[in-house]
Simulated assay, not measured.
Amino acid sequence: MIDPLYVASGFGVGLLVGMTGVGGGSLMTPLLILLFGIHPSTAVGTDLLYAAATKTGGGLIHGWSRSIHWPAVVRLACGSIPASILTMVVMWKLDLNAASERSLVNLVLCFALLLTALSLIFRKSIIERYRQRLERVEGAATAVATVVTGAVLGILVSISSVGAGAVGVTVLLLLYPRLPMASIVGSDIAHAVPLTLVAGAGHWALGTVDWHLMGVLLMGSLPGIVIGSYGAVRMPEAVLRATLATILIVVAGKIAFAELSVPLSTAMAFARGIGH
């Protein structure tokens, strides 16, 4: 059975992704956790394969437009794919119980959301401050920094499904200051496809993917992305970035509060028991 609320949620996230270019993980994963009460690990696993499906279309378009810088994509993947596989193996070996797994995903998700929000807010000032300095960096150093960036993104994305959007674009702008914006975005999307696919496959192996949910979300998100991309040119970029950053900060705070409220309530109950 198709739940219209899931379709509407997919449409809303697709609309925002099309308008802002920020990865859907920073929007869809918190929505599944907070609004629908989906277990964080299932939300992440489902969102990763959902993102792989949606970004494949964007990657093909950028490929046809020749707006992908393949050396950057390969370097990112050299760091992110091994890091993603290693992360999933570690999670499998740890075999965390449901509560511990929930806490881990929520904490990493909060960090990734805040990092994404900060990259949206301060991207322009960071680039203006460091871009000229980074233009003088040698090619070998840039290659190493790109691989390291990929590894960090691989860990973040595998655990939280967040990081390959605004954060990836900001770092690429710093490392490849001579590339046009279209190539930066195209390269980030092209890299996100194999990363989300590998990480999503890992979650599938762990049993944390809801295929029916993913299909329903795609029904709404695909038309939402098309409409959002059309409307993006009609809204100031600064307003879009500030609005989205505010949403991400509020969501991160809500997840953190929900995560901390459990041990706090337990501690208060324990204290009351001692008092009696």
Rank of each mutant, 00 (worst) to 15 (best):
G63S: 13
M219E: 07
G165F: 01
A192P: 02
V90L: 13
L94I: 07
R136H: 14
G24W: 00
M88E: 08
G168K: 02
I159R: 00
I227V: 11
G14C: 06
G154N: 01
V89G: 12
A238T: 15
G200T: 00
L5K: 10
V233C: 15
G163M: 04
L107Y: 06
V22I: 11
M268H: 13
I155V: 15
I227K: 08
D47M: 05
S119E: 04
P177R: 02
M235Q: 14
R131P: 08
N106I: 09
V17D: 04
V137D: 09
T196A: 08
E128D: 15
R102C: 10
M235W: 10
P194I: 13
T149Y: 05
V105S: 01
Y130A: 09
R102V: 14
V162L: 03
P177H: 03
G25R: 01
I155P: 00
T142L: 12
R133P: 04
I85V: 13
I225A: 02
M268L: 15
A151L: 05
G37M: 08
R133Q: 12
W64H: 15
K55I: 07
H39G: 12
G18F: 01
P223I: 00
T170Y: 04
H191Y: 13
S119T: 12
R178W: 14
G21I: 00
S229V: 07
D210F: 09
H39T: 15
S261R: 11
V171N: 00
